[in-house]
């Protein structure tokens, strides 16, 4: 028996080490050292100087921190409804038999496999204030032409538009899978009971879709709070900081201003915020998520 136990321990080591070692080296160690760095003042070059919790207290009282969190929140608030309503709408349309369905599904999904940097560059060009396609079309319609990423008021909406365009297909696929998991007899029963299409959608389909909705909202908010690539490429956080988000600030603090300690502290604040938001959603799901 004892020999067998030791035997199993050997096998456990064999099967787990290939993942445990890299996770330890490239996730756990940096995680701990990030906490350590966050308690210091450090420009990546000269020796670290212990400052205790100063980085945290400074960040929490700094209006700049509030601004980058507000911008990130505004991004989520604009992005999530767009991508959710659009993705759900498309999924509902594509869930029925129609000519060219496979083609449309593929077309909507193409931006999902395109990298953020390409999407950001293409949209930066589409939203070019003077010679971009979007403003040319708006001009032809006689509509006002915003300055998009050159205008502090429009920089964040420009990023939101590009992001929603990219992720629409992802949400569509998740919702489509959710729709296909809904038992048809339930929908049929509602129809027999005299529920019209509108009632069937609100009373039957949407509640039964709630696990997929939950998944999309949780994932979108986690990704939304970590938004960086498209902001970095499209606006660089500008004009004059109008679209700076939390991760952009972490990057700039470290590599532009040489304040690695503060950057690490900010990354932990962000992590805490994401954890709290996700935990609240997981707790709140009992109220509205129906598991079939």
């Amino acid at each position: 028996m004892r020999k067998r136990k030791r035997h199993t321990a050997g096998w456990a080591l064999f099967f787990l080490a290939p993942s445990a070692v890299p996770l330890l080296l490239f996730t756990a160690v940096p995680m701990v050292s990030s906490l350590w760095v966050s308690l210091h003042r450090w420009n990546l070059i000269s020796p670290m100087e212990w400052v205790g919790l100063d980085n945290y207290t400074h960040l929490l009282s700094d209006p700049g921190t509030r601004d980058v969190f507000l911008h990130t929140l505004a991004y989520c608030a604009g992005y999530l409804p767009l991508v959710f309503a659009g993705g759900l709408g498309l999924a509902l349309l594509l869930n029925q038999r129609m000519p060219g369905r496979a083609f449309f599904r593929a077309a909507y999904f193409l931006p999902v496999v395109t990298s953020w940097v390409v999407v950001a560059l293409v949209w930066k060009w589409l939203l070019n204030p003077t010679s971009g396609l979007v403003n040319s079309l708006l001009g032809a319609l006689g509509a006002p032409q915003p300055g998009w990423w050159t205008d502090p008021a429009w920089a964040l909406p420009a990023v939101i538009l590009a992001s929603a365009w990219k992720d629409l297909g992802f949400v569509m696929v998740i919702m489509l899978a959710g729709l296909q998991a809904i038992p048809q007899d339930v929908v049929e029963a509602a129809r027999t009971d005299g529920a019209d299409a509108w009632q069937r959608f609100w009373r039957v389909t949407l509640p039964l879709l709630s696990p997929s909705t939950f998944f999309v909202v949780v994932i979108s908010l986690i990704n939304g709070f970590q938004v960086f690539d498209q902001v970095y490429v499209m606006t660089g956080g500008g004009p004059s900081g109008a679209s700076q988000v939390v991760v952009g600030q972490i990057y700039d603090l470290t590599f532009r201003y040489g304040r690695a300690g503060e950057a690490s502290a900010l990354s932990w604040i962000l992590f805490a915020v994401i954890l709290v938001i996700t935990a609240l959603q997981v707790r709140g799901q009992r109220r509205w998520v129906h598991h079939a």
């Binding site: 996770l23 756990a28 940096p30 050292s33 970590q226 992590f271």
Partner: peptide, 27 residues
């Protein structure tokens, strides 16, 4: 210790790249 080890795996799942990027760069 299987439960503990699996818990640690799950913990790394929640850490975003942004937290790791500075120390990983230093490493």
């Amino acid at each position: 210790g299987k439960g503990l080890v699996f818990g640690l795996y799950l913990a790394t799942l929640m850490v975003p790249m942004q937290v790791l990027v500075v120390p990983l760069f230093i490493e």
